[in-house]
Amino acid sequence: MESQANGGSMLSLQGIHKRFGDLEVLRGVDLEIKKGEVVCVLGPSGSGKSTLLRCVNLLEPPEEGDIHLEERSICRGPGSGTGEQSWELDFVRQRVGIVFQQFNLFPHRTALQNVTMAQEKVLGRSSAEAKAKGNELLERVGLGDKLNEYPERLSGGQQQRVAIARALAMDPHVMLFDEVTSALDPELVKEVLDVMRELAEEGMTMIVVTHEIGFAREVADRVVFMDGGVIVEEGPPAQVLDSPREERTKQFLGLVLDH
């Protein structure tokens, strides 16, 4: 697929460290993401992929390092650590959407209400505006007929599409996808990937943590391979996936592809 990255910097991560107790999950990660770029992050479990995403939207603020979002620092260098300074949090959460492995839909609200709630509470949109936007987005992810269903009545794939619509309703500049198909039955994976593919084609900046090698090959502008809390190798999908330079990348791809 043709790259839609237009050169401007969307996200810039420098020297990110994150520790959980004695365990150092991220050990110095540098990553640049351009506007419109789709980056797939691969790696074995425990390599720090998900933590990296959670650092970007400050769900897990990094202990060390700096993150710039649209050229603005969102964590104040080494030791700032808390990430609870409100302007940064608001700035980040208004620009960064995230979709989780476990969907995390609000079970006490319908599909449409899941999509409208934060629009009204956070963006201050009127109920009519929020509903119109919610309708449009749910229609777009193929759930125009499920507006008033509660999450428990939806399949995993449908729930995940609602979750994508919910994040998009906030008009994010970047979307983070944290293994969003890993909890799905195999036959439901495609419908979710299709929505993500469409989003990529429309030019959304995306960081996709995934085990779907085929998706990475087809959709990503760049593939990043992580292991042991660092980026081992990155580059265009064809290069990283077909002729990896690093031994660890080869091993991992061998394990993923040989079965």
Binding site: L59, I98, F100, N104, F106, A118, K121, A167
Partner: peptide, 23 residues
């Protein structure tokens, strides 16, 4: 209530108070 609920609400930009009240 699973921790993912608070995370989802916060990641949508809700404050802690809004997330408690609404979610």
């Amino acid at each position: 209530v699973p921790g993912g609920q608070m995370e989802a609400a916060r990641s949508l930009g809700m404050s802690h108070g809004q997330a408690m009240r609404n979610v």
